[in-house]
Nucleic acid binder design. Sequence first.
DNA 1: AATCGCCTTCAAACCGCTTTGGATGGCGCA
DNA 2: TGCGCCATCCAAAGCGGTTTGAAGGCGATT
Lengths: 342, 342
Amino acid sequence: MNLKELASRLGLSPTTVSRALNGYPEVNEATRERVMAAAKRHNYHPNTRAIRLATGRAMAVGHVIPVATRHEIVNPVFADFIAGAGETYSRNDYDMLLSVVPDDQEEAAYRSLKSKGNVDGVIVHAPKMNDPRIALLHDIGLPFVVHGRATGTTLPYSWLDVNNRRAFQRAAEFLLDLGHTRIALVNGLEFMDFAIRRRTGYEGALSARGIAPDPALMSSDEMTEIAGHRAARRMLALPLRPTAFMVASMISGMGVRRALEEAGLQMGRDISVIIHDDDLSYMKNGEDVPIFTATRSSVRDAGRLAAEMLLDLIANPGPVPQQRLLEAELIIGQSTGPCLRL
Amino acid sequence: MNLKELASRLGLSPTTVSRALNGYPEVNEATRERVMAAAKRHNYHPNTRAIRLATGRAMAVGHVIPVATRHEIVNPVFADFIAGAGETYSRNDYDMLLSVVPDDQEEAAYRSLKSKGNVDGVIVHAPKMNDPRIALLHDIGLPFVVHGRATGTTLPYSWLDVNNRRAFQRAAEFLLDLGHTRIALVNGLEFMDFAIRRRTGYEGALSARGIAPDPALMSSDEMTEIAGHRAARRMLALPLRPTAFMVASMISGMGVRRALEEAGLQMGRDISVIIHDDDLSYMKNGEDVPIFTATRSSVRDAGRLAAEMLLDLIANPGPVPQQRLLEAELIIGQSTGPCLRL
DNA sequence: AATCGCCTTCAAACCGCTTTGGATGGCGCA
DNA sequence: TGCGCCATCCAAAGCGGTTTGAAGGCGATT
């Protein structure tokens, strides 16, 4: 069942039927209702491929996922971000296009998305310092929203980010208030922008209290259980072990916890831990009472909002970028307590 | 730059240019090369929207992701499966379409995907017992491959699955051989097909050695850290505690490990644990030496293969379903050892 | 020399929708 | 009565490719 057939059944022209269904004013309300009813009765759905060609819009948003040939790290927060964004797209009748490409072909992927006309815009994930994708997308004229920010970029662009600096600053202050002075940072890879900002917040809080950040208490690695465990283990073996840990993610935090338990330390009593909690649906931080004290910010909400920003940008193009900074909550859980060796 | 313009620059008809680029035989090799060169030089990429309308093919595959309104569980293995499938699609110039819908609108989502012509086929995730989606997709005539199987379904259909029954049977036998008799099962939700099969394998192995499965030693819940912890904790409090655990996933396993450590038990010495390892890229089971003894099967490979099956099914339609059963490896790690109370 | 057939190429129809630019008829108003 | 203006509807031209059916050119065959 297509437009032409539906039109002929109704004794109308395709023009009128199309307009009736799309809510144009120049059609009699009585006929509009007749058309609507017939469309429902015959289970008519306009062919998306034809709409796309005719309107020149793709009605789709792209997400390019680079897969590293060596590391093969698929970001664990990715699934939740996508779920959030996907809800927004569904609500607005947009499709979500995932493009999984080897990381050395990422630029080509964006270019092809644009020149083949598959999408109306893209979301940029995991920005790095001086991320080249921003200039690229500017160049080729593909609307985009960055999830995060890219330090060093001078071009204006739209982004949605969590205030990672302030979150880690507050978390560090919270630990300092509890009397901790040897606070370790188990950070993500520091070519990622958010990791840089988190370190800045951590160092700022320490410095403000006259504590010089100690390189031995700072690590930067992938946010896996293994890496979290490794980092914590190393630091716990120091002559002057830390009395508190700040950890980049829930999963890293589980590795840290394992190291603590191996060392016979009880979390929250002997030693304090604060993690960043992306509020992943499959990795909840406890049920009623949070296991970890955490800086929390839902990555799923971020997905929802970033998608909304992008759709808005597509509908209302203009040179003015949209920017939105979300604050993380500081959730008090069972993993922090006063420093024992005052 | 479009076909018509490229053609006029070359002094050829659009027909010939189109054929030259698409490798049709009825075009002079010399002109084909001339066309190819010009296409590259002018950076010509055919407009996907036009191709789709003209050919009637969507050149896209859909994945419908239902989000439960209450539980809000986004399957953690999902990201890796998608990454694998996405590689296959990219290689074959197919798009991957993700449709995130409330779980009570899943049927409508499939119907709409079909009637609007957005995709040529779909992958069905997380099949349940007597899964209604199989009959539905049969009905509406949308090619599909199921990741897993659906017990109780009589219709023939294409699937790719891991031999979950045998994997858990072998794992149980391995524990039995080590002298364990009180073996606990921390399973996933048992309306999921794979969870049912795992339990069958587990029970079969016990029964074959004359051990009656003990309901107190079997739990079925979401595969989260919290749920794993809760189940293990409950079982460890039994008068006759288990000496070994079989656990449905890496994440559940971390919860079990936490319960063991709280009980002062050392994994691999005091008590044994076998998990199922989906080989997630962000959740590796150790580096050189596996932390957990595990039944392992890469969900990413499964994604790659399922996507290949589907593309094949789309290219060569026919009534003969394709089916493929993958075997899981049994990986010996540090979390298992002989039963102490022989 | 006429015919045949192959190799190339092309014009035009088509995919299913949107949208522009009329056309038609009824109505109010002078 | 005549005119202009809406309200309503339609024919046709796109959108940018693919594909069908046909035609031109040329060497080989008879």
